[in-house]
Amino acid sequence: MEDILKKITTQTTLDLKARKDKTSISDLKAMPFYDRKTVSFHTSLKNSSGIIAEHKRQSPSKGSFNCPASLQDVVKGYESAGASAISCLTDQPFFGGTLKDLLDARKSVNIPILRKDFMIDLYQIHEARAYGADAILLIAACLNNEELKTMSLEAMNIGLEILFEVHDLEELNRVKEVTASFNASKYVIGVNNRDLKRFKTDIQNSKNLLPHFPKDVLAISESGISDPDIVKELKKLGFEGFLIGENFMKTDLPGTSCGQFIKAIQS
């Protein structure tokens, strides 16, 4: 089966060149949101529901979710439902997202926003800052250790926090090495239950990796979560954050679905 992750990062490189040619980093730094005071992703996850509710129009494995709600209605609904943070997809070719989505989300809510994309270049970190993100995603499968460190330091230097995403123990060990000297309140580590090469999901992946997490680092479980009882189980094991998109976006009213889900995990 084709390696979807490789296909996505190849396309990301092409799209990035076009954006760099059009907009310089100086242009990004001149945008209104670049200097705004960011909202702590880590603190919000720690102090509320732990749900990172995602705005996602489509996926390579499921196609379009055909959600009729506008982005503004979706993210406002998530905030009203009690989500700790919003994940906003900005990859266009594979997930139907845009940087404008990030900008529109920022204008609509006050909770932290994660820019969810395939980050492979320092330029994208400055884009995230300029378009209103509070945190960025760094996928260990896309980056070597030097790249992970360089990009995370750049992000933290401009006030962004980081969600490091891992899929297996080798990637988790690499992230542990890279973050050994970092302030644990400036990043979190997420286990993606979806194999990004074949897009199959298995919650057991989170359970297997949690015992190997560094002490005092907030643990996130991502993908394939559709049952509140799974969240309750993962919470008991020690997970404090849960990234959920498809389960809400496949409904007509994602905010309402999110609210019902949060009430169920708190009952």
Rank of each mutant, 00 (worst) to 15 (best):
T43H: 12
K62C: 03
N192C: 00
I189W: 06
I220G: 03
V191H: 11
L122Q: 07
I158T: 00
L243C: 10
E54M: 08
V188C: 15
A130M: 05
Y78C: 05
L253W: 04
I25V: 15
F199I: 02
G255M: 12
M249D: 10
L137T: 13
N145F: 00
V166P: 08
K20N: 14
L172G: 04
A135P: 02
G190D: 01
Y187D: 01
I220H: 05
T10K: 08
L172P: 13
E127H: 07
Y131M: 15
S40A: 12
E240I: 00
V175G: 10
L143F: 08
R198M: 06
A155V: 03
E246A: 10
K186H: 10
D252V: 12
G132Y: 07
L160K: 01
L148N: 09
T98N: 13
F182D: 01
I8K: 10
L45D: 02
A130G: 13
K186E: 11
E240D: 12
G159T: 05
L210C: 08
M156A: 04
H126S: 02
T13P: 04
E54Y: 04
E154F: 00
F94E: 12
Q72P: 02
D21C: 06
G190V: 05
A133P: 00
F182A: 00
K207A: 10
K62A: 13
A30E: 15
V217S: 10
E246F: 00
F242Y: 11
R19D: 13
Q58A: 15
D195P: 07
E147N: 11
G96F: 09
